[in-house]
Structures are given as structure tokens and as C-alpha cells.
Design a protein around this nucleic acid. Sequence first.
DNA 1: AGAAATATGTGATATGTATCACAAAATAAG
DNA 2: CTTATTTTGTGATACATATCACATATTTCT
Lengths: 225, 225
Amino acid sequence: MQNECGDCVCVLRSSVNMKDCQLEMLGGNHTVVKFKKGDSIIKQGVFSTNVIFLRKGMAKVHISGPSREQIVKLVKAPTYLGLPTTFGDKINQYSVTSVIDSEVCFIDLEVFKRLLGENRDFGSYILMELCKSELEAYRRCASRTQKQMRGNLADVLLEFSEKLFEADQFTLPLSQSDIGNWVDAGRESINRVLSEFIQDGIIQMQGRQVRIVDKKMLKMISQNG
Amino acid sequence: MQNECGDCVCVLRSSVNMKDCQLEMLGGNHTVVKFKKGDSIIKQGVFSTNVIFLRKGMAKVHISGPSREQIVKLVKAPTYLGLPTTFGDKINQYSVTSVIDSEVCFIDLEVFKRLLGENRDFGSYILMELCKSELEAYRRCASRTQKQMRGNLADVLLEFSEKLFEADQFTLPLSQSDIGNWVDAGRESINRVLSEFIQDGIIQMQGRQVRIVDKKMLKMISQNG
DNA sequence: AGAAATATGTGATATGTATCACAAAATAAG
DNA sequence: CTTATTTTGTGATACATATCACATATTTCT
């Protein structure tokens, strides 16, 4: 258990000067849970008293909009999940669902808050993280609404390739209709553009296995909207 | 000067237990500046070392997107401006421009950080604010992209009326093309829908003076997309 | 006060995507 | 293994909005 927790915060420990006693406090107040692909980790509308850390895996953050479910972003381990929804409101304001098998660490909110107070480095680390994700949210939103489908889909493919999987070949963890909910497009349109990309020799696909062939072209498409 | 600063943080002081010595520290390290309508308060791409507090007035937060300037949100005093852009990055990641004559308080970043560390209440207050604005950003983005123009414009009018001016009658601080940049629409479309609303007896307008006549109908339009 | 720049009002047309309607695959469930 | 259920593939059509093209106000500047 302690051991697990050492791993769990090791990412932070490198940048944050965390005392052993604080690590122990954390170790004594957490639970590790496994989630299978498709399982709900955080559910919008439900009361929450835990800070959640994604140890392994990948998850989608989504919020219910006026007419459909909007995917806000995809995140991969290691990262905190739903800090805004935990601190900003007692009731979860969005959902998080694992898109591949994942492992999650629940930390008691009070313990986490105490830690924030005691360890200034840790506090400013969390503050920074929040700021960055807010900035990212602004950028994404502007980009999504101003580009058209081809550009947005190119962005998604590039994000999978460069940020999430860090490979030219990967398995899409989302269905086409989910991708549609991410980039504000209909499922059919996603399918059509994907076909175009294959036709044009930009990507290859078999099932959900994607291979990016012409990354330069993808970046071109991403840029000119 | 001290006096001014007492006002400046009075909003916080009510909820945050700030010691007099901390107030003084703040008082000694700030500058109050006036901005006229249209002046740039924070400029994207510029190096920044100040936390900025909007004492009086109203400002638009905007970010340059792939093809045009995207207005992210409108804020009114009293509020901090650009915390994410100050903490998240040394270089401003978005711009803030006053839309009516405003008064702004520049606080040295280091002093602000020290304050965050020393005063736990203040720290968690700021953390909360950040979380809330991130949640708000998610909600807005989902709403904007899923609703169509009439719904979005209704939202904007309601926001002016209920959140920003707290009155049924007010003067639009934005041009129609700015409103377009806010809700992702062309200037002409905004104009047309505005005319429709007038025709339908939902609002009255003379110049930029707006009077909301049928608020219920506006809310209806806001909801059904 | 007069000139220049910016903001509004309104038609006609173009265009990207949504939506509907099915068929075929692929996955999950019993 | 068979039956449901969810995904994917593709055409035809509809529609909301962008875009273009002006005319007219209104504000700003000198």
C-alpha cells in the first residue's frame, strides 16, 4: 500500500519536495481501484468527497450539453482527474469515463486539502496545473469552433499520435460517434472525412488501428482550418 | 493608497481572514491604473509579472484563434484578471481589453505568491475561483457549440441582463461583430437575429441601448437551442 | 465642422454539415 | 454458437450560416 502510494506521487515527488510523513499520511488515506474500458470513474451530478488520481490508463472528460454529451478532453495517466469538479463544487459538474483499462487512486479530500496547506510547493504545483488546464480549455474551444471538420479531425489524430500514445500507430480508444462528440460533428461526417484521409494516403486504417502515413499533410490540414 | 487597497481587497476580506500586515504588504506593492473603453489591459504574447485585479469597470477576455479573435468571456469588477495566464505561463496566453472605462490594480507577482503561501484561506479562495472558472469554461464551450445562433444570442442577452448589469435595460458594451466573435457567428447573422428579436417583441433597441421586454421568451429560446 | 474610419442594416447566393434512411460489419450478450 | 446491440459505411436531401455586395448611420479624428 505505501509502496503503491510512493509510485503514485512519484511524479510529483520529483518536482515537489514532499516529506515522508506527508507521503505516509497520503498512503494511509487512499484506495486504489481498477476500472475497465467504458467504466464511469466520475459521474456528473453525484456528490463527491475524493480527489482522484489516474495511475494507469486513459480517460475521457465529458459534460452533458444542451443536446448531447460533449467530450471536453482526453487525458492519460499519470494525472489528477477532476480537480475543478472536486474543489469548485461538492457535486460533480462533469463526468470522467475510462476509455481503456485503468487504475485510479482515490484520496480523501480533507487529507488532500491539509497537504495543500502544509506543503507550499505542492500547493503551487496544483495551482499551476489548474491554470494550465484552463488555458488549454480556452485554446481548444477557440480552435474547435473556428476550424472546420477536416482541421479538427486532423488535430485529434495528431493529439493521439503525439500527446496520448506518442506513436505513429495506435488503436483509437473512441468510437467515431465519440470523436464526433469531441469535435462537434456528426458521426457520419467523421466517417466521411476519415475515408477521405485514407483515400488521400494521409492515414491507413484497419478497424480501429490507425497508422499515420503523412504527418506533414495532417499538420497542413490542421493549420489551414 | 492604503485606503484604496483596503477597498480593493474588501471583497476578499469578508470571506478571507487577511491580517493587517498582509494588507499593508499588498498596499505597498501595487499600482492603480485607469483604462479607457477599448484600452488593452493584458496583451497576449507579452511577458507579464503582475497579478491584475479589476477594481471598477468591465473587460473582455479574448484569445487569438486560427482565423479570428475569440472572445472567451466578459467579466465585471470586482475580480482578478488573468490568473491562469499569470501563473500558467510567463507569457500572456490571452488578452484582456476593457469594454467600458475601468480601474485596475497591478500587484507584484512575488508579493501575491507570498500571500498565497502565508494565508491559507486566501490560497484556497484563489484555488476555488480557478476551479469555478474552469468549470464555467467547459459549460460555456459545450453550450456554444451545441446551440444555434438564436439560443446563443439569447444567452448573451440574458448574461448581460442578469449577471453583468443586473438590469432589464442596459447599454451593449460590445459591437455586433464582437458579439459575433463571442458566440461564433458572423456579424451579419447577429444583426439579423437581433432584428428578429425586435420584430417578435422580445427586446427593444435604440442604438446600443437594449431593453429586455419578454425575458421568459428569451429563456425559452436559450433552452431549446 | 468636415473628413475618414468604423459600425449597422438587409438582400442574394454559396457551402459545409446535419439529418434521414438503410445495409453491412463487428462486438457483446445469452 | 446464435441473437442482440452497437458500430461503421455511403447516398440523397435539407438547412443554418457564412460570405459577398452594397447602402446608410454613427462615431472618431484632425
